[in-house]
Nucleic acid binder design. Sequence first.
RNA 1: GGAGACGUGGCCGAGUGGCUUAAGGCGGCGGCUUGCUAAGCCGUUGUACGUUUUGGCGUACCGUAGGUUCGAAUCCUACCGUCUCCGCCA
Length: 424
Amino acid sequence: MLDIQTIREKTDLVKQGIQNKNVQIDFEAILKLDQARRDVIAEVEVLKHDRNVVSKDVATRKRNKEDASDLINKTREIGQRIKVLDDKQREVEAQLHELLLQVPNLPHATTPVGMEASENPVVKEWGTRYQPDFKLLTHLELGDSLGLFDFPRGTKIAGPGFPLYTGHGAKLERALINFMLDFHVDKHAYTEVLPPVVSNAKSMSTTGQLPKFEDDMYKIPQDELYLIPTAEVPVTNIHQGEIIPEENLPIRYCAYSACFRREAGSYGKDTRGFLRLHQFNKVELVKFTHPDNSYDELEKLRRDAEDILEALGLEYRVIELVTGDLSFAAAKCYDLELWAPGEARWLEVSSCSNFEDFQARRGAIRYKPGAGGKVQLLHTLNGSGVATPRLLVALLETYQQADGSVLLPDVLGPYMGSAGLHLK
RNA sequence: GGAGACGUGGCCGAGUGGCUUAAGGCGGCGGCUUGCUAAGCCGUUGUACGUUUUGGCGUACCGUAGGUUCGAAUCCUACCGUCUCCGCCA
């Protein structure tokens, strides 16, 4: 959510930012409601002040056993007018709030202006292309022959897009999750959390999934819960409504969770194998930072995610999202993409975003300056560190051998245990 | 799932319709004292919104949302949460 005061005082700047994000917003309606709200507050507060003054007189007279019926009649009338104005204020504020929840975050000044994903600049490339002289197999062919997963049976159990991992495939999936969690905890000083995989409407609203993207999520109407599309939701809401002492910042969490996405409207795209799923596993990084250094923290966050890919020896590139490709809540975002040799294409495995105070305002997440002074909104950031399905794809395809086996990188040794690194 | 108890500031805790501008204590902050030492004394204390001549002024907030009343922390209703006991359960 944007600050209504910013919208009021820097209207042109806000309009330009939203336009760069390629979103249509009726700011005139917002400003009109804002004015109406302030008018009604000014009016009702005068009345409430009057009522408080007269009520005190009533109390004094009653104590002195004097008659107060004239004053009581007077305040009765004031009270009725207050009730009408209170209702009006409630209504206007509800309308205004509803509109404000629809407004996306503004892009940061350093985010390149552009309308389409094809304009996203590549800002970094790492690693060397895996080009052996035998014919490369896809992860599906490898998984099939090695018995790592069973898509037909996953479909039988739940439906397409719900993967069933089997044997060493299940072991490898678990190994990757544990490897990434340990890496971020031990090398990057994140605190591990294991959150609920459902969240309520309030939490979904904090991070920006609601109200706009309700149809993208799995709902449990009986209990008014949603399956989380990312651990960002429960983890960011850990500090919802809290005031954090400045000296505790930055707070860094990493969390494994299963993620659930309906992927409505994307049928037909990437339906094969692991490229797009309704349920997948992800290790997520979430930071709560001081507003002054959130952009430094974004660079570090991205670096933390890159470290995982480098430790696994996988070729990747980093792209920076242009304003029009930025997600609803983000002010700036990097995507990390892995090269999948069998698929012969780049696969997005991580998005690292700074939301500035957008989520913090929706969730009332604030910090108290150490030197005293006003409580202020902090900045939230998050990034995948990273999502497993496409990581698994790139890993299997990059480490495949001429005989159809897969020789995994040494860093996974402690995690594969008796299954070993050579899948054959 | 059933029965009961409870929800007040950073924390403890008083308050059952107006003397509350939420007592008192703890903690925090500032100052004084440095001859009573494991201290004492004085002052201060949250959040949001509106307004502002930037000094302030005003309004709201006692789990949440409504309601009754001239007036609600206090009375009523619903919901949420916590605790205890019973049932069920990995």
